[in-house]
Amino acid sequence: MTTETRLATLDGFVYASLPQLMALELRSRGLSFLSRQPLSSILSGAHASRLRGRGLSFDELRNYTPGDDLRHLDARATLRYGKPFVRTFTEERDRPTLLLVDQRMSMYFGSRRSFKSVTAAELASLSAWIAFHAGDRVGGMVFGDDKIEHIRPQRSRARIQALCAAVIKANHALHATRPETEQQNQLDTVLRHCLASAGHDHLICIISDFAGAGAQTLQLLRQLSAHNDVIAMQVYDPIALQLPDKGRITITQGTVQRELQVGSKQVQQPLGEFLAGRLRDVAELLRRSQVPLMMVSTGEEVIGQLRLELGRLTRRAG
């Protein structure tokens, strides 16, 4: 695709733009990954376990006073001095938020409204602004089929702009004639990098169609969520749920393209079952990892879906 053609498609649906992503700050106001109640959080997991939050740091050891949490009694100091002592803690002011943003060739597809790659870019921007306004540091990893760009977490608008710029760079590198590279699953590679760098008490948002996810992906997600809060945002195209009754669709893989007449039963039924089945398989894998799952369609505006998904998962955890 020529530069002129790419610029002509910078409509926010085929390719995203940096001003488009930065402008989402205003629309992110009022959204949060946390609710007011400690147990009613989308990050509290399937069993309503308490959110790790931003972590606690030890403050002081002092005499027990009525009303103190008995779970904070220090047994060793109590035995040594013959009277109860408690440990007090303060909540850390911020924590790192890492956004893993998929811009592989599998994301370069859209049958309605926008491409999956653009929907992922918008989700990344909204998530970054939500974390920023919660007082957290924001960074991430933007990955294509053969490259991973790391952005270290900082709490600044300049860092969010750097993250969004990395997403835009990867987004604009996608084009229909670009072949997919034959290599190991890049999603699993990114999860391993994240596991090596995240440590503890991070918020990790994985924004992807999860193409190629398998047993290794499941294991890595479980390892990540053992010490961090993890959210999976699965981007999908509505054609996976319902094929059109008639007409033609173009299937693309690298430089190979083929048109299919979807009105034909020999095409529509097996193709529809394959696409819907693949979507269900990935969703089931993510649920098995016990990572909160949000599903976002390319066919509708992202902000409205995100608001609904946050509300749905918060009600489920409550």
Rank of each mutant, 00 (worst) to 15 (best):
F210G: 03
V256E: 05
Q183Y: 06
T255I: 14
R248P: 05
D209Y: 09
G199C: 04
V235G: 14
A176I: 14
E182L: 13
Q261R: 11
L174I: 05
I204M: 05
H227E: 12
E273G: 00
L191N: 02
D237K: 10
Q223D: 07
A198S: 15
A215M: 10
L243A: 12
I207V: 14
L279W: 02
G214M: 06
Q216I: 12
A213T: 13
L203G: 07
L174R: 08
Q223E: 13
A170T: 06
A211D: 09
K265M: 09
I168Y: 06
A240G: 02
I204N: 03
V262P: 02
G254R: 03
E180F: 09
R192N: 00
A211K: 08
P238W: 13
R178Y: 05
V190P: 05
P244D: 09
A215R: 13
I249P: 09
P244I: 01
G272T: 04
A232M: 11
V190T: 13
K246L: 15
V230K: 07
I168L: 15
K246Y: 14
Q266P: 07
S197I: 15
D209H: 09
S197H: 07
V190Q: 11
L220E: 10
P179I: 00
N171C: 00
Q219N: 11
A198E: 11
G199L: 12
A198N: 08
E259T: 09
G272P: 05
H227R: 15
Q266R: 14
G254N: 06
R278M: 08
S197K: 12
Q219S: 14
R258Y: 09
I249E: 10
I168A: 05
L271K: 03
V235S: 05
D229P: 06
L275D: 04
D188I: 09
A213P: 07
L195I: 06
Q242G: 04
R222P: 02
Q266D: 11
M233G: 06
T181K: 12
A240N: 15
L275P: 01
A240D: 15
I168W: 03
Q261N: 15
K265V: 08
G277S: 05
S264F: 04
R278I: 00
E259Y: 03
L224W: 08
Q184V: 11
D188P: 02
G199K: 10
I249M: 12
P244L: 13
C205G: 00
I239Y: 02
C205R: 05
Q266G: 07
I239A: 04
H200G: 01
L279N: 06
I251N: 00
D209K: 04
G254C: 01
V267F: 04
I231K: 05
R280F: 02
L271G: 06
I206N: 10
G247W: 07
G214H: 08
I206K: 05
L224P: 01
E182D: 14
E182G: 03
G272I: 01
R178S: 03
A226V: 03
R280M: 06
L218D: 06
L241C: 10
R248C: 13
G212D: 00
V230Q: 07
